[in-house]
Simulated assay, not measured.
Amino acid sequence: MASNIIRPGYVGKFSCIGPDCEDSCCIDWSVHVDKQSYLKIMAHPQLKSLAEDSMQPINVKDEDWAIIRFSEQGRCPFLQQDKLCKIHAVAGEEALSETCRSYPRIFRVRGDDGFESLSLSCPEAARLILFGEDAFIFERNETEKPIQPRSVPLWAEKAYDYSIDLLLDEHSDWQQTLLAIGLLVNCADKVTKQQALPELLDDTYTQLSHMAAEGELRQAFQSLPYLPEHQLHIFLSVHSMCCDEHPRRYRPRFGELNDAILAMSDGKEALNMEKINSAWNDIAVPALRANEDLFSRYLLYYIYHLQFPMTADNSPLSAFNFLVLDCFMLRSYLAVMAARHNGLSERDIVLCFQVYHVVRQHKPNFHKSVRSIMEQSALTGVEAVVSLLKVSGS
Score class of each variant (00 low, 15 high):
Ile58Pro: 03
Tyr301Trp: 07
Tyr103Pro: 00
Ser97Ile: 05
Ser71Arg: 12
Phe353Arg: 02
Tyr304Asp: 03
Leu50Thr: 11
Phe320Asn: 03
Lys13Glu: 11
Trp280Thr: 00
Phe235Trp: 06
Ser237Phe: 02
Ala196Asp: 14
Ala287Pro: 00
Pro153His: 12
Cys85Thr: 11
Glu256Cys: 07
Pro198Met: 15
Glu216Cys: 06
Asp169Trp: 01
His362Gln: 08
Ser54Asp: 10
Arg140Asp: 12
Ile6Tyr: 05
Tyr333Val: 03
Ser315Pro: 03
Trp155Ala: 08
Glu214Gln: 14
Phe366Gly: 08
Phe131Lys: 03
Phe138Met: 03
Leu168Met: 13
Ser163Ile: 02
Leu79Gln: 14
Leu379Met: 14
Ser265His: 01
Gly381Tyr: 04
Ala126Val: 11
Glu383Leu: 09
Asn314Lys: 12
Met42Trp: 04
Pro77Glu: 03
Val285Trp: 02
Lys40Gly: 02
Asn291Trp: 01
Gly393Asp: 02
Leu47Asp: 06
Asn272Phe: 02
His171Glu: 09
Lys363Glu: 15
Ser315Leu: 09
Ile303Met: 10
Val386Phe: 01
Ala290Glu: 14
Leu388Val: 01
Ser15Val: 08
Val391Arg: 04
Ile181Val: 15
Phe308Asp: 08
Cys25Met: 14
Leu379Gln: 01
Met337His: 12
Glu245Asp: 15
Arg253Tyr: 10
Pro252Asn: 12
Ala335Cys: 12
Ser119Gln: 01
His341Asp: 12
Pro57Thr: 06
His341Asn: 15
Lys190Tyr: 06
Ala384Tyr: 02
Phe115Lys: 07
Thr99Gln: 01
Pro57Asp: 09
Phe320Asp: 02
Leu344Gln: 09
Leu224Val: 01
Leu179Trp: 00
